[in-house]
Design a protein around this nucleic acid. Structure first.
Ligand code: FES
Ligand code: FES
Lengths: 142, 142
DNA sequence: ATATATTAAGATAAAGTAGTCTTTAATCTT
DNA sequence: AAGATTAAAGACTACTTTATCTTAATATAT
């Protein structure tokens, strides 16, 4: 279940862009400075988002990247699906199928319910909502 | 949060040994066959458990490994701590600190509660209980 | 003693992830 | 047209995890 750094970086950058959608193109250099992420590595990540048409990029002076759609129309599921292959919330709360059955697990039902909520949130939470809820940093590195 | 394969293999082998404690030493070859784990890799994992005095080993014919203490006296926390460095249940249900604060997360409180249950279970569930609850395979590979 | 069984230990390989560096392509400014 | 700016693309490095292979050490059985 743990997300890769690529995915975290992509999420953080996307939320940043959502909070600045009116600014147009933002350079990757600026994003990498603000989020304290390696510029080159972030470039790779954002290229993938660009190729998936989640971001739009523009070269040259005044260029950079921006969200391709309105932030209220992009769910975090889209970002995750682009950057993480086969992302699924596991059946087991420990992140892997440790116990296969309900009987052996003292909290399996609790987890099953929460898992549903998480899945729903991932599918419906938009970058706009995230950027609005808290303008401060709320997607952080590990 | 996701456990490494080393840790999963160690847990599975330990539960198997808990279910056969009366058999004395069980060869690693037999365990690897039964659990369908690479013999050599499993050997490495069990060596670490042996060095941590969770398992006891014996070389030569009729040798093998067995639990060093009674299964009812070994928690899964011990196995995990031996095989996984710095294992902690993360603050965020997605396995990493995605959102830092309560406000931004639609299920933070649910997760916080479940996290407590999981931590307690990890600290108190014993190999004996696990082996007893279900004699069938209930710790599976991914 | 010798052959066999078995874990221990070490070297190596394979794969994935994270990170860096260099070159190319596109765009703008002058 | 020339030079500067910026993303795109590709090669490369470093690290970790997983897995394999070989040899050594230890114990048993005959
Ligand atoms: S088996 Fe892991 S949550 Fe129930
Ligand atoms: S921030 Fe991830 S569970 Fe609330």
């Amino acid at each position: 279940m743990s997300l890769s750094y690529s995915c975290i970086y992509g999420l953080r950058a996307s939320v940043l862009l959502a909070g600045r959608q009116e600014d147009g193109f933002v350079t990757i250099r600026e994003i990498s400075n603000e989020l304290e992420i390696s510029f080159h590595f972030l470039t790779k990540v954002l290229q993938r988002l660009t190729n998936s048409d989640i971001l739009e990029s523009y070269k040259g002076p005044n260029g950079g990247v921006k969200l391709a759609k309105d932030a209220s129309n992009i769910t975090i599921r889209e970002i995750i699906d682009c950057l993480e292959e086969n992302f699924t919330i596991p059946e087991c709360a420990l992140g892997l199928p440790i116990f296969q059955n309900h009987e052996a697990c003292p909290f399996h039902e609790d987890w099953r319910e929460l898992k549903g909520k998480i899945e729903k949130a991932v599918d419906t939470l938009t970058l706009h909502e995230l950027a609005e809820r808290d303008k401060k940093i709320f997607i952080s590195n590990r």
